[in-house]
Design a protein around this nucleic acid. Sequence first.
DNA 1: TAAAAATACTCCATAGGTATTTTAT
DNA 2: ATAAAATACCTATGGAGTATTTTTA
Lengths: 305, 305
Amino acid sequence: MELRQLRYFMAVADELHFGRAARRLHMSQPPLSVQVSRLEREVGVPLFERSTRRVSLTPAGLHLQARARRILDEVDSVRGEMRDYVDGLAGQLSAGFVSSANYTVLPEVVQLFRARRERVSLTLVPLTSGEQFDRLRDGTLDIGIVRDEVPTGPSSPGLTTEVVYEERLVMCVPTGHPLASRTEVTAEEIIDVPMITYPRSLMPGFVDRVDEVLGISAGTMRIVEEVVHQETALGFVAAGVGASILPESVRQLVPPSIAVVPIAGSPTTRLLAARRTADDDNAVCAAFIECLHDAAASLRAAQPA
Amino acid sequence: MELRQLRYFMAVADELHFGRAARRLHMSQPPLSVQVSRLEREVGVPLFERSTRRVSLTPAGLHLQARARRILDEVDSVRGEMRDYVDGLAGQLSAGFVSSANYTVLPEVVQLFRARRERVSLTLVPLTSGEQFDRLRDGTLDIGIVRDEVPTGPSSPGLTTEVVYEERLVMCVPTGHPLASRTEVTAEEIIDVPMITYPRSLMPGFVDRVDEVLGISAGTMRIVEEVVHQETALGFVAAGVGASILPESVRQLVPPSIAVVPIAGSPTTRLLAARRTADDDNAVCAAFIECLHDAAASLRAAQPA
DNA sequence: TAAAAATACTCCATAGGTATTTTAT
DNA sequence: ATAAAATACCTATGGAGTATTTTTA
């Protein structure tokens, strides 16, 4: 028994006329007759009573009509459901994110995405930018929210990036620090300050960015500590170990013992959406990126600084 | 999308291994791979993630697995249901019966059959034997309960008959009649009695039988009336118009004004099951005939006269 | 007699088989 | 190096078309 036969059978059952049914199926009458009688032979019972003047359903045919309708309808809806996977209305998305995204776009993105694509199961993985690049390449991750990677740059072959959100860089110092009361500091003033920074391997983009802001090569900074998370960096700052350059959104995290000082020229750091260039037709990814942009827009609207 | 493809897909989804799945399907691996990827191309979304070492379902594949299982199960049960029509467990039966059967096997037959074949819709049509033969031949009737037709005789070409129940013939006369008080009458005594009888065209078997009992040719009897139903015949007898020869089961119908007199030699009349010789593989018919025999047996057991 | 289904046949699309290649571990 | 899926190619089944026959109302 094949679906084709059920479809043919249904057409004849509806029309009660092999010729008309064949026309409806865009085929000629003889193969239709053949297929129907083949189906009858298979199930072992006549489905139609035919004469040259009248075709009618047998009890078995009547029964099959009801059942076949259900089956064919089900097949149709499966087709639609499969389409939903193509269109990104259903499926799965593994999204990586740098932990600092938690304080900007991430909460809203998740909320938006879950509302818009409730049949997509979203997995969120906190990872550094570097880890995300690796996992995007090996396919373990569908999309990454990374910081300051150069778009389409040589450091990320096979990956596409797109700017999502931009914010200013600020310097965090202990409140007792000489620069703590300043309304602004310059790069020159920062160079001599003992600095808490990040391993380049894990956060290439952001580290490059900071170097760029300071206008120096990485080696010349006075690095007293390398940490992986903003929270850790702030802990060291609060403990008086040194200063740290961070995205302005950390204001939400700083205790009273830490002063946040803007940097001259308001240099910025950016969140980027990164994905494999190979599957840029992934509709779920596209929808997620749209949510990212919308969340960023609503963030900017809320803080029109 | 065809059922074959769904079946193949399910095998691979179960085994998560194209080679094993192919073996289970009794086919070689390459065409299986081809069919699955054809299905994937049709639905537009990958169903499996394959490497040479591991095959796993994508979210879409997982979804399809659940849906396809339902669909294939449904197709299987339809197959079973169609089998029921072959086996006569479901379907339709049009059964004709001579009205006199009402007083013997019919009530029990209907009860038995409805109990044993509850998914067969039984249509009962009261018809004379002659009418039943006609309708059996043109297919309007599946089985007939007729009286005294010659089994496989030339009067019923294309029909098969089978004796179901036998009962004695009796003579019914008005209580005032000279023969009314007799314990038995002979054929010779009856010949001169004005007789209420039946049109040969409608009841060939029974009329032949009566003639045979009386040992005369039809023309020589003193026929005063031809009627179609036993009830009518009894009405005329009660009215004193004449006598009538009937199956003994009419005792249930006779009013006090009518006497029932056995005939010498206890000649009998028989109920026969008639059906088209052509469809003697009709399982529903067979089941009905079995009910007829069982009902007749239980009747004989109840009246061991 | 005419309308419609069944049959006969022909052709080609495609399912399935075998041999081989590719790929990932 | 090896196991397993994909690919290439071939064969043959059978689905669909055209022409024709059969059937019955």
